[in-house]
Design a protein around this nucleic acid. Sequence first.
DNA 1: TTTGAAGCATGGTCAGACCACAATCGTCAC
DNA 2: GTGACGATTGTGGTCTGACCATGCTTCAAA
Lengths: 256, 256
Amino acid sequence: MPRIKPEEPNTHRTMHVVNHIRSLIENGTLQPGDKIPPEREFARALKISRASLRTGIGYLAAMGVMKIRHGVGTFVADGPPEFGKTSLSLMGALHGFQSWQMFEARIILESHLAALAAERGKEEHHAALAEEVAEMFATLDSPADYLIHDLLFHRIVSQASGNPILAALIETITSALYDKRRKTVERSTDRRESAEMHREIYKAIRARKPIEARKLMDQHLRMAQAAQGMERPPERRAPASTQKSKQARLAAVGSN
Amino acid sequence: MPRIKPEEPNTHRTMHVVNHIRSLIENGTLQPGDKIPPEREFARALKISRASLRTGIGYLAAMGVMKIRHGVGTFVADGPPEFGKTSLSLMGALHGFQSWQMFEARIILESHLAALAAERGKEEHHAALAEEVAEMFATLDSPADYLIHDLLFHRIVSQASGNPILAALIETITSALYDKRRKTVERSTDRRESAEMHREIYKAIRARKPIEARKLMDQHLRMAQAAQGMERPPERRAPASTQKSKQARLAAVGSN
DNA sequence: TTTGAAGCATGGTCAGACCACAATCGTCAC
DNA sequence: GTGACGATTGTGGTCTGACCATGCTTCAAA
């Protein structure tokens, strides 16, 4: 007896949910910051169990598309786009990303971003950059405060580039890098010189000199890279890893 | 009576699972391709319900860290790193990423990648690139086949760059771009000229001329960009979007 | 030897109950 | 009136146990 399939109960429920919400977002029904219906109600509407709905929402939340607030509700993510913060560091652990590789990516992206910012930056960006440069000079004696304005400066450059994708990529890499660096003591890498360089970059962006902005940013980041010892190491051979046997590794998975 | 907290039952179970697996990956106990214990068994080991375990695993799977195979088991992702394929396109719908922005990001990343490949590419990469160039010339009459080798060529350049992070970023952007382009008919954008350019790029990489490789790749991609009409549009003002009211939008969320 | 049908291991879904958190509302003391 | 504080309500988080769906393995029949 051939099995009749009046509808299509297949296609994992999870993806059913994901695609449904996806289409709602794509046709503009759902916009950043909007709240979706309560789980129980939504599940009833989609004719699936609450558990399955939750799986789908969890999937979207993991990708940063949805934000869940316990006791409040579930919302479409607003604010700047994020490519799962945990994602990069986890992927790093998994695929052995090296710090110098992250820094290399950052240098490439951010120096180009500076050039784009010089081309497209608007008055408001120029003003904000000037503000941060001033703050940096004002906090030369306070490493923690200085760092904040340093980060803000770079973030504004990202926004001024007019390309949110590149800005989001930079943001992801920077935060992953920051996590690694947070533990190391704040070496007082001559903040005055650093501030001067930021000022030069600002001037190039304001003067709409993409080539120069790019060059200065590249130079600035390479110095930072050197200061943190994140240059690309020379070729190594024979990693000589001391791996446990596969059997021994897998036996330890359940340990807590 | 004050509540005693001998342990910390808090910290959402989901993150408990994620962090547990994360640490297993970071200390090398779990490696790409490894299979984790069956859900029922693993849940018992972690002293949580199977449902919660599944939530955590789903989270990791959404980020591309785990691969779930129904009826078989759950595995740590192997193969090349992926930043959630669906992520970029969903984020695009959410934050209004434009095609030209994706292409701009691609141009910046990939032209630099070509330079790095020229610096660091090994014999094997050179051989593989030559192979693909030859295949491209051999399939000038077959758009579909040509496209395959086109993609492969670029992927090999990514690998040759020696920076898996940049390679993964490119891969994500390219696949998102490809999804958008798939529907458009394969315009026969002079494949012969395209193949010639790839050959030039290959020669520059093989000759270890980073500057030239970068320039050629940039040139090649800008032509492709123009051919697909993905240049950055001139400044627009007054988007004049025809948005429904918030109330009307949210009322339609449950529709199926 | 081939092939098809069980059987089994594993992930997927469901239902319903209860827990935990956050905002709101109502009561009561001041 | 007004503030504090507890109850109520709405919402996500977790648990349990059952059953469904898939895909590999095994084994018997052809």
